[in-house]
Computed example of a mutant assay.
Amino acid sequence: MTTTTRLFATTALALATMASAAQAATWRYAFEEAIDEVQGVFAQKFKEEVEANSDHTIQLFPYGTLGESADIMEQAQSGILQFVDQSPGFTGSLIPEAQVFFVPYLLPQDTETLATFFKESEAINEMFPELYAEQGLELLTMFPEGEVAITTKEPFESPDGLNEVKVRTMTNPLLVESYRAFGATPTPLPWGEVYGALQTNIIQGQENPMFFVESTKMYEVTDYVTMIGHNNFTTAVMANKDFYDGLSEEEQQVIGNAIDAAFEHIIEYQDGLHEESIEKIKEAKPSMTFTTLSEEERAPFKEAAQAVEQEFLEMTGEGGQEILDQMKKDLEEAESGTSG
């Protein structure tokens, strides 16, 4: 074999090895919940679809395995992680417009309307991807996780009832403003500190979807669950943009198809989950009190929410106004589509 032939053969082998490695990579995906909670169920379906339709492997990292929310976002932006699932509640510091999901009483409670909105919204599918791209992130999808409930140590039925009550919030400026408007004392804390802070009365309340209240046993350190109808928890699945842009069209299609399948799966999975979680809590702690405020009782909270919407616009300027206007238009279309 001549030197030229050997060189050609070696180069061909190296290229084949590189191609094989590209075809069979391990992709890392971190999220903010446990493996059996909503984000974990979505991630497992995504993993199943990707692995069934490609040579790639998805390695999943549930909450706590790679640190807090801020840690996994940094790892996604730096390329250590290929995928990350994080609520706009945490991403709001990077992308102020994403805080629109925390404008109280903006999102509807009807689950069918919500699903249609998240699937078809121009704001989500066309406007937000550009904002995420500026932060080195490819926005793959957003999805709802359930109506947000407030758990407290004492009952309340009005903003006056939340006076001086310290309610834990995510480190999100608009969420802080929401609870201030609702009469409470907002107290931003990392999630890992919440149970202990409630146990020692450093805080007296927190908010989350009902499945999360049940799975994290927040009912053990609070006594009242109140639904004021102010929000539905939203989360976003993203990829590191450099990683995503470096993929072939076929690989991007595999990811897109897996995201679509996981979205449909998680919407179906959540059907009845809110009610099932309430029943589990009642069984574990019969003394737990559940209250859903009437429309009349919600009126003072809705009135307070108007100031929060204005605060969002002051934080985000013209860009925030465009996002909010488009979201309201998208919501109207989703409502007419599901009711028609």
Rank of each mutant, 00 (worst) to 15 (best):
L106M: 13
M127P: 00
F101L: 03
T116A: 12
Q75N: 07
S87K: 01
E48P: 00
S121F: 02
Q59L: 14
L94H: 03
A115R: 14
D71P: 06
N53H: 15
S93H: 14
E49A: 07
F102I: 05
A43R: 12
F61I: 11
Y132I: 06
Q59H: 13
P108R: 03
E97P: 01
S78T: 09
G64N: 08
E120C: 00
V41E: 14
V41D: 01
F128K: 11
P62W: 12
P88T: 05
T57H: 14
A133S: 08
S69R: 08
Q86W: 00
A43H: 11
Y105T: 08
F46D: 06
T113P: 01
S54I: 07
S78I: 03
E97K: 04
K45R: 15
A115W: 12
L94A: 07
Y105W: 10
F128W: 15
P108K: 05
L81N: 13
E134Y: 00
V84Y: 12
V41C: 02
P108W: 01
E48G: 00
E48L: 06
G40S: 11
D55F: 13
F42P: 03
F90E: 09
E134W: 00
E68T: 12
A70S: 14
L60C: 10
S87M: 01
S69T: 08
D71W: 08
M73K: 13
E130N: 04
V50W: 11
Q44T: 11
F42T: 06
Q109T: 04
P104N: 01
F117R: 09
E68G: 09
T111N: 13
F61K: 14
F46W: 12
V50L: 07
E97C: 04
P96V: 02
E74P: 00
D110F: 07
F61V: 11
Q135F: 02
L81W: 11
L94T: 00
H56C: 06
Y105R: 08
G89A: 12
P96F: 05
T113E: 14
V50R: 12
P62A: 11
E74D: 10
Y105H: 13
Q77R: 15
K45N: 13
K47L: 06
T91I: 15
S54Y: 09
E122R: 14
G67C: 01
Q82T: 09
S93P: 00
I58A: 11
Q135I: 01
F128H: 11
D110P: 02
I95V: 14
Q135T: 02
V50Q: 07
E120N: 12
F61P: 09
K47D: 05
K119A: 15
S69H: 07
P129V: 08
L131Y: 09
T57R: 13
I58K: 10
I124W: 03
Q44M: 13
V41G: 00
L60V: 09
D71L: 06
F118A: 08
Q77Y: 04
Y63A: 14
V41Q: 15
E49P: 00
E51V: 04
Q99Y: 02
I124D: 05
I124N: 10
L94N: 08
A115K: 13
I80M: 14
I80W: 08
H56G: 06
T65K: 14
K45S: 09
E112Y: 10
E49L: 05
S93D: 14
D85G: 10
F128Y: 15
G92K: 02
L131H: 04
L94Y: 13
H56W: 12
T113F: 06
I72H: 01
S93L: 15
